[in-house]
Amino acid sequence: MTKPRVGFYDLTGCQGCLLSVIFNEDEILNIINAVDIKEFRFIMGEKYDGELDICFIEGGVVSNDDMDVVKKLRERSKIVIALGTCACEGNIQAMRKFHDKKDIEPLTYKKNHQNDDIDEARAIDEVIEVEYKIPGCPPDREEIKEFIKQVLIGKKWHDYKDPVCIECKLRENSCLLDKDVICLGPIIKGGCKAVCTTNGLKCYGCRGLTDDANFEEYFKMMKEKGFRMDEVKKIMDTFMARRVEKALKGK
């Protein structure tokens, strides 16, 4: 069996997703043996511009440069995976649409990059077609590993769609909502093994909304707990401002 040609690439992001791949220390050699890694700048110097069977892309599309890169990667890849929340949802970068430019300007690395020469920051599936999404900020390293194995045996990957609460309850955590914390668990896709809530952190929603997220009731519940809608929305905006905007418009 010929090994699939795999590339790991990054657009605008923090590279935490690619780190998650490497954080599979115990199995990284297995991964390297199972696939033919053509480019992965964290572990090798080689560049590659040929065809890819599997192409992981982390980061969001925030500039014309990113646009070019992602379109070219698409052209030479059979399977494209949006890796991490920037690639899947837009993440932090996408927030700029919802703020005044002058508020954001002091925060950008403008010396090195021209990274706002397109109107708004996008998830990569808004620019190109992607076969799979592995969300998470960062994505779960175990899930990346499972994904690679499943693709290798020819399976179609089904992403985890159940809410965070299920895994959180399995771990017998006390519910943060009862402590009047704006935890997004009930309306956010799990698969993260409830890692944040298990460690006392609220769910910020890095894996995106569930298929049938019940916004109306979630906001109502928060209102009853004494929160204003903008306070709740601010938490939601962290990772998925664009999705939330669309979802709320649809209501």
């Binding site: 609460c165 299920i166 668990g185 009731e217």
Partner: peptide, 13 residues
């Protein structure tokens, strides 16, 4: 039912 968040907590508990 429309007030249900479909979070599944009830099932697990």
């Amino acid at each position: 039912a429309k007030t249900c968040l479909s979070c599944g907590a009830c099932n697990l508990l």
